[in-house]
Design a protein around this nucleic acid. Structure first.
Lengths: 192, 192, 192, 192
DNA sequence: CATGAATGAGCCTTCATTCAT
DNA sequence: AATGAATGAAGGCTCATTCAT
């Protein structure tokens, strides 16, 4: 389909992605000129590979998205619907809280790369299916819908960001928040 | 301490805040030049009243913060600790989801105005007290701490943003999300 | 209507126009950065006064257009319709061949300044009226229409450009070409 | 002299010229990268065949120039000097108004290809001869010189461009303009 | 011969902030 | 106090040309 890249071009491309990941990790907004300087290539080279900053960012985020999608497959095969649901969300959240390129890509309304759109849609529908399964098994409150999953995950990730630095505790914090939310999702008669 | 403003200066100040509120509502990042043009005054005037965009933004957000603080007082007087806690959070969230100036101010690590810092601290401690009361009354899971309240509220507000447009449903969505979280916060024996 | 400019601003504006005129005269395409450097002001200053290169170019061309418009009034008052027509075209052409900012502005399909549009329209209709008068007086071939006047003037000006450098002879050359064209416009029985 | 091209190279060359003609027809300024993409070859290939955009453009224009040159031979053989002159100019103009590669090549002061220079010179001298013949036959005003022919043709072509779109009418418009100019060129006593 | 990735100067434009008026 | 013109660094992007593969 696509012509395989020349060796050197492929190397540059990879260097660019790596540099971009570094910049994102530093909290810098992606600037193609920065990336170029960082890698030591001309701006044009960066633009050739990634026509926009969004395209680059999505490329940076891609591995995480792919990994989540793969994990989604596994989760769908799990025989315990609640556990499947729970661990999938947990995995999603851990990734989002760990890979800073994910949040903006997930929250974006439109995508630069079609693969991104595919993956986002895949994750959305996987989550939806897992939610449905859990619900059918009678374990989920009825007032959370499929469309709420992504927002809620983004919300928790954001809560972790607001909570403050301490990168070491980010995953723990995320787990606590998710645990609380999931406890709230479990369907039980409201105590009077 | 502060000399009272000349009548016209006071009026300008107020117009500036109003215009800023309008711009924030439109989703525009606050630009002091924009504000000036909108009001019909020179940029210099805006800078005189508000040395930075943050100062202006915090001024825009102030009424909401004050209102919440006032409500916090009431809540502390409530005899039902869980209800007090619940309604305080609900109020906070409704405000945050309704007044777009609030999110950035709340999430900011440092403030431009000392009054902002005071108010944020006040709200934080009010929340903390309400949480403690609810906990003492035996109604709250132990793994949520005082320092989690603000992040969680910001998180839910962000979830509502990600959820998408439809301004009309923002409050409803926020309520649903908070209800779920609160359900998870209530301390109950985990069903086996 | 428009607030009169501050003295220094007005001076800058004028300097900018002068520099632009110089650049146009040198055959350089107008670049706002160039202009700024030339004048010794920041780019922003140029952009403040002229949002686009077109706006600046039209401002450079304006005096010539205004002068032509004024001359058009005189021509309309002339009692000899053919002479009026002839001298108006001649004046137009002399200007166009002398002021290098004119050609691009005249040929442009759309304008940046409304004043430019007004002036162009004025000149067009003046030319049209003079043509009609000459025709009514029985002196003009019928196969040249109102809409042909501007193109023909641009055409002759371009012919002068193609003819080559020698700025000194530009007006003479233009006169010769126009004279020939006008000779062709005079209505006479075609010799068999 | 020149080694004949390898079959595939020759084919590439031809494809490049065709693509370039297409781009010129679309009004795009010739960009060698565009051409390459269009043809599906590397830029390097285009550069190998045509060191500059001018060289390519002149190659695109060549057939028209050759055709005009050929027609010039015919015209020189015509027994009616005025008709010869008239039809030659008409033919030139039709071509220029029809083939968009011609105008820039004709108007250029210097050429990239020696063949272009030869052809332009040939056309110039053919025109000059036809003008002289017509003049000798007593039919042409004295104030138009040999060196004016090319500029005037370019001028009329430009007038047609300024006149506006409507590709269908370009030739008609050009004919009208040339007819008027020629009428003016015919030598006759100026009516008093 | 062909390829097309890489280059990087250079143009465009915005905007936060200052300061002369 | 108010004004708003000026600043100019900074970022965005294009494109003609070269040269390693």
């Amino acid at each position: 389909m696509t012509t395989p890249l020349r060796r050197d071009a492929a190397r540059n491309r990879e260097l660019i992605v790596v540099a971009a990941r570094g910049l994102v990790a530093e909290g810098t907004a992606l600037q193609l000129n920065d990336v170029a300087r960082r890698v030591g290539v001309g701006v044009g080279t960066v633009y050739r590979h990634f026509p926009t900053a969004e395209a680059l960012l999505e490329t940076v985020a891609a591995p995480s998205l792919e990994a989540l999608a793969a994990y989604g497959e596994e989760a769908l095969a799990d025989t315990d619907p609640w556990r499947a649901f729970e661990t999938f969300l947990m995995r999603t959240l851990e990734t989002q809280v760990t890979d800073p390129s994910l949040a903006p890509v997930t929250a974006a309304a439109s995508d630069a790369l079609t693969r991104t759109t595919e993956l986002k849609e895949l994750l959305r529908s996987t989550g939806a299916a897992l939610l449905d399964n859990a619900r059918s098994a009678g374990a989920v409150r009825s007032d959370v819908e499929q469309g709420d999953l992504v927002p809620l995950m983004c919300g928790i990730a954001h809560a972790v960001d607001v909570r403050g630095p301490a990168p070491a505790e980010r995953v723990d914090t995320a787990r606590r928040y998710l645990a609380t939310l999931l406890a709230g999702l479990r369907d039980r008669p409201r105590p009077v």
